[in-house]
């Protein structure tokens, strides 16, 4: 069932449609939250909060864009809130053995830890765009909507993000 119909049915009080909507997007939202939070338990908590927030504020939701984008917006905001509350760990304490650096470049670019570390080193806006584009497989137009910025700004952030990521992962040919 498409999102528009699902939302219409939820509005009419059908909780089975709500069930279907959650099942449809749970994994995507969880994956996004995990990549933002870097912790499974936190990601699961935030994912749960995303859907609870969606349900509690369902009346204020108007079907103008995609429902998926709306969920990503909630997820993004809740991740930011959760990260602000969480005490930040020094980068060295996260993956000390994997972050063997040479002139700021991560050597072992083929490992999950180094990719994660490289992503972590990106500015917030660029990391956001890269995550949504390459992991969540969203179109630039949708990413612009989610991050509440213009399309050209989003393109620029993606370009800058990839350039920085390429440097960090020693992938010069990305640019």
């Amino acid at each position: 069932m498409d999102d528009e119909r699902l939302v219409r049915e939820i509005k009419s009080g059908d909780t089975e449609a709500l069930d279907e909507l959650i099942q449809k997007y749970y994994r995507d939202i969880y994956a996004y939250c995990f990549r933002r939070m870097s912790c499974r338990a936190d990601a699961e908590d935030v994912t749960q909060d995303v859907f609870l927030h969606f349900c509690r504020n369902f009346d204020s939701y108007t079907q103008r864009g995609k429902c998926r984008n709306y969920l990503y917006v909630i997820a993004r905001n809740l991740c930011v809130n959760a990260l602000q509350k969480k005490p930040s760990l020094p980068l060295s304490s996260v993956e000390p053995e994997r972050l063997a650096r040479d002139d700021g470049r991560v050597r072992r670019a083929d490992t999950a830890g180094s990719v994660r570390a490289a992503l972590r080193r990106l500015p917030e806006e660029q990391r956001e765009v890269v995550l949504l584009r390459f992991y969540q497989d969203l179109k630039l137009k949708d990413i612009a909507q989610i991050t509440d910025s213009g399309l050209s700004v989003t393109k620029y952030r993606l370009y800058q993000g990839l350039k920085a990521l390429g440097k960090l992962l020693s992938k010069e040919d990305w640019r």
């Binding site: 939820i10 909780t15 709500l18 959650i22 099942q23 859907f51 509690r56 504020n57």
Partner: peptide, 15 residues
């Protein structure tokens, strides 16, 4: 995931 569905339904009804 099941727990999320259950809680979301409850939140929806409460709303």
């Amino acid at each position: 995931m099941r727990r999320t569905v259950r809680l979301a339904k409850a939140a929806y009804r409460e709303r």
